[in-house]
């Protein structure tokens, strides 16, 4: 991955407001405008699928793009977040916002436990350990009584958010999802452009040197992993509120693969890549659904084309062409 070093990443871009470069600030404003306008044009449920997929991909991108660790088990955190959120919403009648937060905390705690084991290795070993641990979570979910096994937790009421906003109407739900996405997106951006993020970059660039300067690199990687898994849990939880369902689908290795694909198509290590990737993959799923299994075939083809033709992903290639940091 380091071979794809572009002139974009070199040189000192002066950070402006909130650490955004000018190009990123423009991109962010365009994204905000789209979030406000699009629900009046497109089906809000579809947009919410994009937003939650984008949040999940952004969280995943924090690990692969900025720490350089490829997790192949992010579905575990996404799916467990969804289960816990759906369960507390249905049986404890918790406030939707609280249930989503609880889902995020579940993802983060699980991330702390699994990350503690996995973070000692890097490269292919890290990917394999996360995959194996996520499969254990999958079998746990298959057998544990509270998940409803093959049926999942169904007919979850959306309830209200913050005690006052009823969510049964799609537009109300949409604004909550949009708010969560923007908050998550900004949190990740802040993490990357923080003193902590600076250390993460140093570890990615030259870990032995970071160690020799006295950085206990495992601590930094683990904190990044917990932030990433927390947001993955939030993404899974939010999805379960939108659709009123949490199933095994959320914890499968296919789900872990989806988020890798989404991020790769959009552009690893770019701020907007995961968002663009989520738009592409979710649209494909949506508009190709009528062709049945052709969705998977098309996704595979897109993946191959992406790896062969534009390795930096859509946003990465555009950024390289324009010599911008996006």
């Amino acid at each position: 991955m380091s071979a794809s070093a572009t002139p974009v990443a070199l040189g000192a871009a002066r950070p402006g407001l909130f650490g955004f470069t000018r190009a990123q600030a423009v991109g962010f404003l365009l994204m905000l405008a789209a979030i406000v306008v699009l629900p009046h044009v497109l089906y809000p449920i579809f947009l919410m699928r994009i937003l939650t997929a984008a949040l999940f991909a952004c969280a995943f991108n924090l690990m692969i793009g900025y720490v350089g660790l490829l997790s192949f088990g992010h579905a575990a955190f996404y799916g467990m977040g969804a289960y816990v959120c759906a369960w507390t919403l249905k049986f404890w009648h918790l406030d939707a916002a609280a249930a989503i937060l609880l889902g995020g905390l579940t993802g983060g705690l699980l991330g702390l436990a699994l990350g503690y084991l996995a973070i000692r290795r890097s490269g292919i070993y890290f990917a394999m350990i996360t995959l194996a641990l996520a499969q254990m979570v999958y079998f746990f979910c298959l057998e544990a009584p509270f998940t409803g096994g093959e049926d999942g937790i169904q007919q979850v009421p959306r309830g209200t958010a913050f005690g006052i906003f009823p969510l049964h109407q799609d537009m109300a739900m949409y604004w909550l999802v949009a708010g969560i996405f923007i908050a998550g997106f900004l949190l990740i951006h802040r993490v990357i452009h923080s003193p902590f993020g600076q250390v993460l970059k140093a570890i990615r660039e030259n870990e032995p040197r970071a160690t020799s300067l006295g950085y206990r690199t495992m601590h930094y990687k683990l904190i990044a992993f917990v932030i990433s898994t927390f947001l993955s849990g939030i993404a899974g939880a939010t999805t379960s509120v939108v659709f009123g369902i949490a199933t095994l689908d959320g914890v499968t290795s296919a789900r872990s693969g989806d988020v890798v694909l989404t991020t790769l198509v959009g552009g690893l290590g770019t701020v907007f890549g995961p968002v663009v990737g989520a738009i592409v993959t979710t649209s494909m799923e949506n508009y190709l659904a009528q062709f049945g299994s052709w969705v998977t075939v098309t996704q595979g083809a897109v993946f191959v084309v992406c790896v062969l033709a534009f390795r930096r992903g859509i946003v990465g290639e555009i950024a390289a062409k324009l010599r911008l940091s996006l």
Partner: peptide, 14 residues
């Protein structure tokens, strides 16, 4: 930064 602190601050601006 390592010698003088705030390396764990992920919520602050750089």
């Amino acid at each position: 930064q390592r010698a003088r602190g705030n390396s764990f601050d992920f919520w602050r601006s750089e």
